[in-house]
Structures are given as C-alpha cells and as structure tokens.
C-alpha cells in the first residue's frame, strides 16, 4: 500500500530527472548554469501547467456535470486568448500581469457564458455539451484571430494558442506558480466541488451555497487557464484525459483523487514535452501538438467506450 502510494511521486521524480538531462545542448558535469536557467524552469513549468490544467479539467467537469469538458473545449482558453489580444490592442505596453488579469477576466466571462449556454441543453445527451463548447470556442478563437490579423498580431495568437515549453527560462515562467497555488486552493474545496458535481438540488439539500461554489470553481478554472495561456500557451486535452483516467481507476471523490489527478497531469505534460524534445532531435515538437494528437485519440476512445 505505502509502496503504491510512493510509486507516482517516484515516477514524477524520475521524469523530472530525465527532463533535466534531455535537450540539444550536451550537459557536462557541473553545468549548473544551463540547468538552473533553462532545464529546471522548463521542467517546473511542465509540472505546474500539467497539474493545474488537470485540476481545472476536473472542476470544469463537476460544474458542467459532464465528463467530456475541459478548459480547451469550453471556450475558456480561447476566451483567455481573446482577452490578451484585446488588451494588447488597447494597451500594447501593458505589463504582463495586466495582460494576465485581462485574460483571466475574459476567461471567466467566457466560461460563465458557456455554463449558462449548456444549462439549457437537455441532460439526456451528454455529447451536446462538448460539441457546443468546441463550436463556441471556435467562434471565440476566430474572433481573436480576426482581431489579431487586422493588427498584425497573428504570431502572438499562435504562441498563446499552441502550448510550447522551449521558450521557458528562468524569469519567464514564474506566474505558473500562481496556477499551482490555485490548484491547491481547489483541493481545499474538494468536497464542495464533488457535491456540486451531484447537482444544484443535492448541493442545496446538503446546505451548500451552490452559486457561490460555481463562482469559485469558475474563478479557479479561469485563473489557471489564463495563466497557462499567457506563460506557455494553451495545452489541450490534459484536463480531459487525466481526470477521465483517474475516474476509471480511483473514482471521483475529489478529496481523495485530486492529488492523483494533479500528479498524473504533471507527469503527462512533462512526458509529452520530453517526447517532443526527442522525436525529431535536435528539433522540437511543441507539447501542445503532441497532447493534441494524444488527446484526440483518447477522446475518440472515450466516445467509443461509452455504452
């Protein structure tokens, strides 16, 4: 039992070790500068973004009461992108934290609107929810692209929308710790999110202030997504694949499973990033692309596995 509990952290540690020693520049003993400035930050960024996005995915699934949603299929990431494009147009010289705040607010509004939209859908067909989300996200993304195209900002939109870790260096990723902090905050409310997943009536029967817990969940999801989009770009499907795997293996009592979700998310993103570094060595494939392919396959498998 204890051995089993140690297995996941040990695997993460091993991955982190591999990540530190994988890259184009050959590492010599004592080459601490490279490790400190590039490899360690990159490894930390992958772990933080992965853990936080997986947690955001679970919370989104509880709030939408639907297994098939996550920040990139509910318009959250696209809304965050739209928010940064908008703020960049209005105030090009704004500090990074201002852009992040704008992205968070946009993600919050975008996701709240999504939840309001899917509340009207019949609950009998759970696939309508992610389909609506994908179309909705497509519209928001198109709006962002259009605005960016008009003002020659297209390459920035690419950076935000396609998660990539090769640019991560000391001093350029630290906001991701905030995403990690939000994931920990989510853990403090784990029971309430599980109850919210049982629906508004059950929540009220158990004395919970349902609108408040939804608002809190939205804030956490929007914050995590916005921070990730701004620092490393959107990494799709982590929030979908990981929670569904953990749900199969260990259920969805979040007080028990949220740490597992976070660890698995961290491991998945880091593993995909390492893979991206070695597949076409010495070139790199963005982690978002790898997860996009992997996630699409798992998503199709999930659809097929549904009775």
């Amino acid at each position: 039992m204890t051995l089993g509990r140690l297995a996941a952290p040990a695997a993460l540690l091993l991955l982190a070790g591999v990540s530190i020693f994988t890259g184009v520049a050959a590492l010599q003993w004592g080459d601490l500068w490279l490790i400190g400035v590039s490899r360690l930050p990159r490894t930390a960024a992958a772990l933080l973004a992965g853990a936080a996005l997986a947690v955001a995915g679970v919370i989104m699934q509880m709030l939408a009461r639907n297994r098939f949603v996550e920040p990139s299929t509910t318009g959250t990431g696209q809304a965050a992108g739209l928010g940064i494009v908008a703020i960049t147009l209005v105030a090009p010289a704004a500090a990074l934290w201002v852009k992040m705040a704008a992205a968070t607010v946009a993600a919050l509004l975008g996701t709240a609107l999504f939840l309001a939209l899917v509340r009207r859908l019949p609950r009998r067909d759970p696939l309508l929810v992610p389909l609506t989300g994908i179309v909705y996200g497509g519209i928001l993304g198109a709006a962002a692209t259009f605005l960016a195209y008009e003002r020659d900002l297209i390459q920035y939109v690419d950076i935000w929308m396609n998660g990539e870790l090769s640019g991560v260096m000391l001093g350029r990723y630290e906001f991701l710790w905030a995403a990690g902090a939000l994931a920990i905050a989510a853990y403090l409310y784990a029971d309430r999110f599980t109850i919210a997943g049982m629906g508004e009536d059950t929540s009220r029967t158990l004395g919970l202030d349902y609108p408040r817990i939804v608002a809190l969940g939205l804030l956490i999801v929007a914050g995590i997504t916005a921070v990730t989009v701004v620092t490393v770009g959107m990494i799709p499907f982590v929030g979908l694949v990981v929670p569904n795997m953990i749900a199969r293996l260990a259920g969805e009592n979040l007080r028990r499973t949220l740490p597992q979700v976070a660890m698995a998310g961290a491991g998945l993103v880091l593993a995909c990033d390492i893979l991206g570094r070695v597949i076409r060595y010495p070139y790199e494939i963005p982690v978002g692309t790898i997860l996009g392919v992997l996630g699409a396959v798992v998503f199709l498998w999930m659809l097929n596995a549904r009775r």
Partner: peptide, 26 residues
C-alpha cells in the same frame, strides 16, 4: 428526489458519507 443521476463516480460509502456533510463539513 426522484431524479436518479448522481454525477461523480463515487462508491456507495462515499455517497452515504456525503450525507454527513452538513454535520462534519468533510
């Protein structure tokens, strides 16, 4: 209630334990 959908994948013991939530808050 009559509506049968529960939502999260819980064990019987998990579900019944949530009945204690008003008393224990988790």
């Amino acid at each position: 209630r009559q509506e049968g959908a529960i939502g999260p994948r819980l064990t019987v013991r998990d579900l019944v334990s949530f009945g204690r939530y008003p008393h224990s808050h988790g």
